[in-house]
Design a protein around this nucleic acid. Structure first.
Length: 152
DNA sequence: GCCAACGTTGGC
DNA sequence: GCCAACGTTGGC
């Protein structure tokens, strides 16, 4: 089973939103590195940390699971949508999304605490200038973060 | 709101 | 294919 961390801005979509919806598509990934991982490596049943970015309390806020593997993100063809990509060919869609299912909330593990944990120093998340919106998490990192919630 | 870091674009 | 300019991300 694979482990991942997905970033989201909670003002737009948070772990609370996901809890209400139970299942949601994860649209709007417009970065090739992140797309390649979603397309090739994110598998049904993989576990996902939901990370809240660009907000008052940044950090890991909950857990979701992959309920549908990569398929075309239709928002790329909607000119009224901010995720619209005029250069994407409908015959060969450039961007994909997966569906995620709510699993549970976690007591927030702040970015500050993650940066202070030597076990997490290899995570792209805690490295300077990181902008990856989707990144792999090792089993050791997964367990370390869970440990930090005190909710193991 | 600031600004550093990064990815993308486009001229050459 | 280089690289400067530009736009975006995201923590603070």
């Amino acid at each position: 089973m694979g482990y991942w961390l997905f970033k989201t801005e909670p003002e737009t979509f948070s772990i609370d939103t996901l809890k209400q919806q139970k299942v949601s598509c994860w649209e709007g990934v417009r970065n090739y590195q992140a797309r390649n991982m979603m397309r090739d490596q994110v598998k049904l049943g993989d576990q996902i940390f939901i990370y809240h970015s660009s907000c008052k309390n940044v950090g890991v806020a909950g857990i979701a699971t992959v309920v549908k593997e990569a398929y075309p993100d239709h928002f790329q063809f909607d000119p009224t949508c901010p995720y619209f990509d005029p250069k994407s060919d409908p015959e060969n869609p450039r961007w994909v999304m997966v569906d995620v299912g709510y699993q549970r909330h976690l007591r927030l593990v702040s970015l500050k605490r993650m940066k202070a944990n030597p076990l997490l120093e290899e995570m792209p998340l805690v490295k300077r200038g990181n902008r990856l919106s989707i990144m792999p998490v090792t089993e050791a990192q997964w367990q370390a973060i869970l440990q930090m919630t005190g909710q193991l």
